[in-house]
Design a protein around this nucleic acid. Structure first.
Length: 287
DNA sequence: GGGCATGTTAGCAC
DNA sequence: TGTGCTAACATGCC
């Protein structure tokens, strides 16, 4: 389910909770972690991962691009002491990337071990944090420096302002669609929001960045920002069996609408493949 | 059974 | 160095 608006929605739910069936994760203490699919834990052996998160409290939840960032602190305030680390007060950061089918939910401990549960963190008061991931592409990281994981990414697609976006874009040479999907350019845009942003900006997905005017580039920067904000306002999009959540899919103008009339001109939306990704656009409206 | 899928990355060619 | 293509990762739905 993972593009920036969906990940932002997950971060908000983990911070604030979502009704009595989903209390907040923020502030809770991890009693114990269980790694059910070790390949999902990256950069650290699973036993060390389990040892190092035990007794830590989730102090803050943030996001960069499509990465969720959980700040873990020693739980001196009533939690179990962290006996494995030389300096238990030093914050640790646990990052998660949902890739294609990952989900991260606080659930009752009794419901934690679903068939596709890959990592489960047992919390206080009978709750658990569950990383469920049918396709096993998702990843969980543990590090003392967030930049070890996110250092090569571009600026977060919502933090970058349209002027900065335009300047970066005008320095590129390739086609617009692959540039938007390149997480080293800006972090957070995926296939759906790339197509929707290009439609909003009236720019063709295979248009070369080098042919854009400064005004074109600025318009695309504003379109990306607006599309992501619209997605967040709808709590993200729901993706069939993978992610029931928001309702942004009801607002798609081109994505998944091949053959249907363009909402602006009525001509059929076209689907092509660009950089191995399915790409939807209106040939009359986007140039 | 074939085709498709929201993502990322290594390897390779130019 | 930048760009772009292919394959791979692994599974489930239509």
């Amino acid at each position: 389910m993972p593009e920036l608006p969906e990940v932002e929605t997950v971060a908000r739910i983990l911070r604030e909770g979502s009704g009595p069936q989903r209390p907040p994760l923020a502030g809770r203490v991890i009693r114990q972690a269980r790694v059910l699919w070790p390949r999902e834990v990256s950069g650290i052996p699973a036993p060390a991962f389990v040892r190092r998160v035990a007794g830590r409290r989730v102090a803050a939840i943030s996001r960069h691009g499509k990465y969720l960032i959980l700040e873990l602190r020693g739980a001196e305030d009533g939690g179990v002491a962290d006996s494995s680390s030389a300096s238990p007060r030093q914050p640790l950061f646990m990052l998660a990337h949902l890739r294609m089918s990952g989900r991260l939910d606080v659930v009752p401990e009794a419901d934690a071990f679903t068939p596709h549960a890959r990592v489960v963190w047992l919390l206080d008061d009978g709750w658990a944090l569950r990383f469920d991931d049918a396709r096993k592409f998702g990843r969980v990281y543990l590090t003392e420096r967030v930049s070890d994981v996110t250092g090569k990414l571009g600026p977060d697609a919502l933090s970058v302002n349209p002027q900065e976006f335009a300047a970066r874009l005008l320095a590129k040479r390739g086609a617009l669609k692959p540039i938007l999907l390149d997480q080293h350019f800006i972090a957070g845009v995926g296939n759906i929001y790339a197509d929707e942003s290009l439609f909003l900006a009236r720019l063709h997905p295979t248009r070369l960045a080098a042919t854009l005017t400064a005004d074109d580039a600025l318009r695309l920067g504003e379109a990306v920002r607006q599309t992501l904000l619209d997605g967040i306002a709808a709590n993200g999009a729901s993706f069939d069996w993978v992610y029931p959540g928001g309702n942004y899919q009801e607002h798609f103008k081109v994505y998944g609408r091949a053959g249907l009339p363009c909402v602006d001109c009525g001509r059929p939306v076209r689907r092509i493949v660009v950089g191995q990704r399915s790409t939807h656009f209106c040939a009359a409206c986007q140039m």
